[in-house]
Amino acid sequence: MKLCVAENIGFCFGVERALKTVEEYLKKERSVYSLGELVHNRNVVERLEEKGLKVLHDNDPIPEDAKDSVLVVRAHGVPPRILKELEKNFKRVIDATCPIVLKLFERAKAAKEAGYTVIVFGDENHDEMRALKGHVEDAIITTRPLALRGRICVLSQTTMSLDDFLSFGAEILKASEPTEFLFLNSVCEVTHRREVEVKKMAFECDLIVVVGGKNSSNTKKLARIASKTTRVLHVQDASELEGFDFKRFRKIGVTAGTSTPLEDVNLVVKKIRLGG
């Protein structure tokens, strides 16, 4: 059995930035909250909770100790209206929205103000897309191409597949009657590099193990892409590999989402080498 580990693993810049921000405030503040899961990875969230982080979910009431607490906004962002409300209630609110996500929000808002119909290739239930709707209320968020007219601006959720986004844009252009057609690539380059790498690995390996959160959009994307070519296991961590027979595979590839800790990947690699 040969083992191949992807070069592009570990936290992306946006996740790393959000985690460092939270850990810094946990050291110096008595009470620190995050709005929702800071990143889409159960292990990471649990480790932060062990250090004292409290997770405030969207529909939770404002905690009694809010005036003495710091709140960190997750990497996926939050609608401006909610951000302003939180700032009224908490001692301090730290916006840890990923800069690449912020750029998407800014581009969507600018397009709307310029008179374009804004259509975004994405999952309307994803945290990033719910935040975007707070910036552009009538943005159309979908994965199904629509026939539109007039001035059209096409953007993407940052964690989507670039190939799928390109196809989406082409189908909209074909079906629509635009007076102007603005296509802006807002797919995160870091997630795209992992997408390209896993495609290559899938052709070379007879099993790909994808490590990361089951609710992580970019991690699920990697599993979906690889599954078009070879067998795939998507696991949260090494504990899900117990008893799996790896010896029957000729070559195994390992990759991970942008919110997956490097230590989780290393434990999976170790488990595979031990044979499951």
Results as ranks from 00 to 15, higher is better:
Leu3Met: 08
Cys4Leu: 15
Cys12Val: 11
Cys12Leu: 10
Phe13Gln: 13
Gly14Ser: 10
Gly14Ala: 11
Glu16Lys: 15
Arg17Ala: 06
Arg17Ile: 07
Arg17Ser: 15
Arg17Trp: 03
Ala18Asn: 08
Lys20Trp: 12
Val22Phe: 14
Glu23Met: 13
Glu23Asp: 13
Tyr25Leu: 12
Lys27Asp: 15
Arg30Ala: 15
Arg30Gly: 14
Leu38Pro: 01
Glu50Ser: 05
Leu56Asp: 00
Asp60Trp: 10
Ile62Leu: 11
Pro63Thr: 07
Glu64Arg: 12
Ser69His: 02
His76Asp: 05
Gly77Leu: 03
Gly77Lys: 05
Val78Ser: 05
Pro79Gln: 01
Arg81Ile: 07
Ile82Ser: 06
Asp95Glu: 01
Pro99Asn: 08
Val101Asn: 05
Leu102Asp: 12
Lys103Arg: 15
Arg107Gln: 12
Lys112Phe: 01
Tyr116Val: 00
Phe121Ile: 10
Gly122Lys: 11
Glu124Lys: 14
Asn125Ser: 11
Arg130Pro: 03
Ala131Cys: 06
Val136Trp: 06
Val136Pro: 07
Glu137Cys: 02
Glu137Asp: 14
Asp138Lys: 05
Asp138Phe: 02
Thr142Cys: 11
Arg144Lys: 11
Pro145Cys: 08
Pro145Val: 08
Leu146Ile: 13
Leu148Cys: 03
Leu148Ala: 02
Arg149Val: 04
Val154Arg: 12
Ser156Gly: 10
Gln157Arg: 01
Thr159Gly: 09
Phe165Asn: 13
Phe165Val: 15
Ile172Arg: 08
Ser176Arg: 07
Glu177Arg: 14
Phe181Leu: 12
Leu182Thr: 03
Leu182Val: 03
Leu184Gln: 10
Ser186Trp: 00
Ser186Asp: 10
Val187Asn: 12
Val187Thr: 10
Cys188Pro: 02
Thr191Cys: 14
Arg193Cys: 04
Val196Ile: 15
Glu197Gln: 01
Lys199Pro: 09
Lys200Asn: 05
Met201Val: 10
Ala202Lys: 05
Glu204Cys: 01
Cys205Asp: 11
Val211Trp: 03
Gly212Trp: 04
Asn215Gln: 05
Thr219Ile: 07
Ala223Lys: 00
Ile225Asp: 05
Ile225Arg: 01
Ala226Leu: 07
Lys228Met: 03
Lys228Gln: 06
Leu233Asn: 04
His234Ser: 09
Val235Lys: 08
Gln236Ser: 09
Asp245Phe: 10
Arg250Leu: 08
Lys251Tyr: 00
Gly257Leu: 05
Gly257His: 07
Pro261His: 11
Asn266Lys: 13
Leu274His: 00
Gly275Trp: 07
